[in-house]
Design a protein around this nucleic acid. Structure first.
Lengths: 189, 189, 189, 189
DNA sequence: CATGAATGAGCCTTCATTCAT
DNA sequence: CATGAATGAAGGCTCATTCAT
């Protein structure tokens, strides 16, 4: 694993564990087993690691979706697995969610973040269009708009589940079930 | 306006404008027209202002809902006005959204933040229960769960609208309209 | 003695002893018996102390000239005492001479330095004009130009004496004597 | 041009342009089109380039004098051309003047600098002795002492002209003319 | 000889916090 | 209660120097 990757992984780990402010460059360097000065050969500042971190999370989400959501399921089977995946990735990186919001608003990487959602939206839009064509669902609004609303809904539910609410396994299962039911209701005649 | 209030307002203004990290106690003191030392008579640290800021935003949201959502409308009329209100307050304080996430994860005020949502959820739960009783809507899941999902959905849409997407008036109007249609579909037989 | 003055004196002492580069802000703070942060309440950077240092040297030179050069001597008596004074002050601050050159060229205080010479030149110009009027001397060029040349001549001799050449008392006495003779020759018919 | 020479020239250029402190070894390496490590094959440290720089300047001065000062002129013709040459070289390297002072006081190369003046003094001393023998001039003090005073006088005038005073061509011409007149007066009966 | 990635000691600077007035 | 000058710990960042290739 090259040094840049080691830095990114160290930053993900430490930002998640202790927050951005409490993570010193020296901590990252130590965790990545490099000298402090070496950090600056790869990134000009602490916050400039954020886009790279976001990239990692996004790739992971995309890849998880690709590998988890079987193509041979019906539409709501896919949505169920999508919900599972979003919850799973959110749980894994829950500490990073606020961090990334903060890191983004603190710096000027908002545009990159916006772009990041693009693949999610287009993947889901395609899914909706196909299902609509097959009469599996009944869209009352534009498929892209629906995709955005759905993604926001699922993500918000996952964040609430892990950041705010109790973290009992059962309650989370219930949350996911309810989200699926809600979506089903919203998309079928 | 007493000094404590001046400090909170100064913090809201500056945190929003420049982020938490880039806002120094001395900035807040200057903006609030107090001496630096005076800050410490009212708050023990910079981050300890966060809950007070959250309180202000929440009060504002609650109050806006109270004054905007007419009691003599039907259920979806109220939802429409709720959407308007959430979008409006989100726009006004959009810079603070990420900030608050950050401030919360950075410190130990998460519990207070969770409590903050309580009034929203219970207000919306009551609304749903009444409407359900009147057969205005048809709930397929528990009303509290529905409330949480709905609130997350609306808030996510508002944040996306103002933080990420184009900020054209028309597009935002369309977003709000679509959210309303989506919710209608999800809550009616 | 107030803190600003303490800082300037500490800087003069340490810059002279160890050079600018080898003098750390922490050294200055320690020498001035203040906290490191306090330094920055009075000066924005290390080099920004330079003009203040130059001021001190200039005031000292001016004051020395005022108190050493008796008004009741003839012209060359005054020049002799001027030479003594310039040599004396140069010796006292010899370590600072190069320092100030460096500090000035390194930063943007050249203009201030230029201004500093103004009083020397005008004092000497007046002296020349009076002596010229009394026929004590015979000017072949403009009195201001003469003043500049004379001052440069004396200063260069003093610097050479203390920076470069042997520092034996006798040789320096000889240097001063020779300078005076040279000047006499240059200014008399 | 070999690498050592490239390094020296790069250092002269950059020290002059940005000062010693602001010139990094990496800058010198880049300017000299060598790798950073290569620098250390030729010089043990940044400051150790200073004597080499001084050598270059001195050689240049000597060579300029040799080629500019015609042997078939009379004494004051030679002095006039000497003044021209010193002014010319000073102008070319004016940024280095303070730098070298600083570099010298910062390090331990003062002795080498003293030696550097040796050839100037002895060249000028010889010139004075010859002219004295020919009755072209009338020395009132020792020829070596006179040489030192003259050299300091000319150098000081040149530095003042280019560092401090107006840089108008005409004024500088006047300065040079005045210096010559002053010297003439000081050396003739 | 040449390279340039890596090192890490060291310094400047910031800024939350204190406290004498 | 209010002030704001003073504090000093802490850390981001630089850059001269090294060394494996």
């Amino acid at each position: 694993m090259d040094k840049k990757e080691r830095i990114i992984n160290a930053a993900i780990k430490l930002f998640g564990e202790k927050g951005i402010e409490n993570t010193k460059i020296s901590d990252i360097a130590k965790e990545a087993r490099i000298a402090q000065g070496t950090f600056y050969l790869y990134f000009p500042s602490k916050l400039s690691v954020m886009p790279a971190i976001a990239d990692v999370m996004i790739s992971e989400m995309i890849q998880s979706i690709r590998s988890n959501v079987s193509t041979d399921l019906d539409f709501f089977g896919k949505i169920e697995q999508l919900i599972d995946t979003v919850f799973e990735v959110t749980e894994k990186h829950k500490e990073l969610v606020g961090i990334i919001y903060a890191g983004l608003s603190a710096s000027d990487f908002l545009d990159e973040w916006v772009d990041a959602y693009e693949p999610y939206y287009s993947w889901l839009t395609n899914l909706l269009d196909s299902a609509n064509k097959n009469n599996e669902i009944h869209l009352v609004i534009d498929s892209l708009q629906t995709a955005k609303i759905l993604w926001g809904l699922i993500e918000a539910a996952a964040e609430r589940a892990y950041l705010f609410d109790e973290k009992e396994k059962n309650l989370i299962l219930q949350d996911k079930k309810d989200v699926l039911i809600f979506i089903k209701k919203a998309l079928t005649r």
